[in-house]
Write a protein that binds this DNA or RNA. Structure first.
Lengths: 211, 211
DNA sequence: CACACTGGATAGTTCCAGTATCCAGTCGAG
DNA sequence: CTCGACTGGATACTGGAACTATCCAGTGTG
């Protein structure tokens, strides 16, 4: 298909497609002449992915890096996943490697009995999220932490359980995209669950075990 | 305390404090003269909260609206929470009220047996997140959906269970801030749980007790 | 052959968040 | 009392990001 059709299929304006092409977020089409190129389904899909990531507020350089990792995953699953997660907010300026720099995150993870590598970016991200909570004067109780840990782990079990194991490349692709793209789904579901739970409790506070 | 101390305590530059003052994100201090005002702990805390929200990438007008709702919650818990959530990404352009406009979200919620109001913004947000998934060529299986629903509901139960019930105002404040501010914590915990689960499974793939 | 379409290059445009500067009033040490 | 540092308030500016628009010359199509 030609650009015009790609534009029509995806709803992305031509100027923006050209921009993404320029920025390396979209691979160039197969050139058939100096002023013509053919695009395929992979371009439609890639544009959809870029839209999803950009819509989540990710800056272009971060998106480019994620796409690079998905396209050319060189390294172990952990390495690549770590690099990909570093492209997701909250962004850390200091890529430290001392566990003591993350007292809050360390306490949480010890409590949950989770293994972790202090160089793994998500540790710093958790630390930062908890520090922000503290600065804003909103406490994070152990009770809540334990419960969160239990359920989040349940979600992670599903994620990993559904991970394709055929090829390492597939697994990496799945893990990178799954982390980034499912988060908005989980957030939206939590917001809706709040409404549901609150409504049911307020309606009949006695029978608090849901269907 | 004076501005200079507020600046020192929070680490926010003076120019930025003035900017937040101008934008109505920070309430003015108690003026003691034409060129002097006194600030208190509430200003430190508010600055921390603004930092947390801004750090999550929320635009200033959205933060202002959230703070307004926290400060002057007029309406029911559901109304206010709905308004607050509308300030959180993903942002919807069309505030529709027809359920049929949200086929994916509707299917999910029906499946989970959750009550929902199509005018509630989070429904549209879920729809959008699912649509983005689809456009990016990443499927959302029923299996995953059910598992997510179960665990997310567990998290929501905790959230609501810990909600203060003394005053409606406290409850609203708690709910609004809890929704916005805990999300990064949950996201970071999920990322870490991925690493933990993956590592444990790869180490000994036999003992996979999954709930 | 005419003309719409294309890739490629380049130059805006818009918005946003923060920063800087200026001013006149005032507090507080000496 | 005086002088200099600090303050609130107003206004102007900056830098970055994500597009968006225009122009051009080559091309495929009817």
């Amino acid at each position: 298909m030609r650009v015009s059709e790609l534009v029509a299929r995806t709803g992305v304006p031509l100027a923006t497609v050209k921009y993404y092409l320029r920025e390396g977020l979209l691979m160039p089409g197969e050139a058939t002449s100096a002023t013509q190129a053919r695009y395929g389904e992979e371009h439609v899909q890639r544009l959809g992915l870029v839209k999803a990531l950009a819509g989540a507020g990710l800056p272009i350089p971060r998106i480019r890096e994620i796409l690079r990792l998905v396209d050319h995953p060189d390294g172990s699953l952990f390495d690549v996943l770590g690099q990909a997660i570093a492209q997701l907010p909250p962004y850390l300026d200091t890529p430290a490697d001392d566990v003591d720099e993350f007292p809050r995150a360390r306490a949480v993870l010890d409590r949950l009995g989770q293994v972790y590598d202090p160089r793994y970016v998500a540790v710093g991200q958790l630390e930062r999220a908890l520090a922000a909570l503290e600065e804003a004067g909103i406490p994070m109780t152990e009770e809540r932490l334990d419960a969160y840990g239990r359920h989040v782990r349940g979600i992670a079990e599903i994620d990993i359980g559904l991970m394709p194991t055929a090829s390492a490349e597939d697994a990496i692709r799945y893990a990178v995209l799954g982390t980034a793209v499912y988060e908005p789904v989980i957030a939206a579901m939590r917001r809706l669950a709040h409404q549901d739970v609150a409504q049911k409790r307020l309606r009949n506070p006695e029978e608090q075990d849901q269907q």
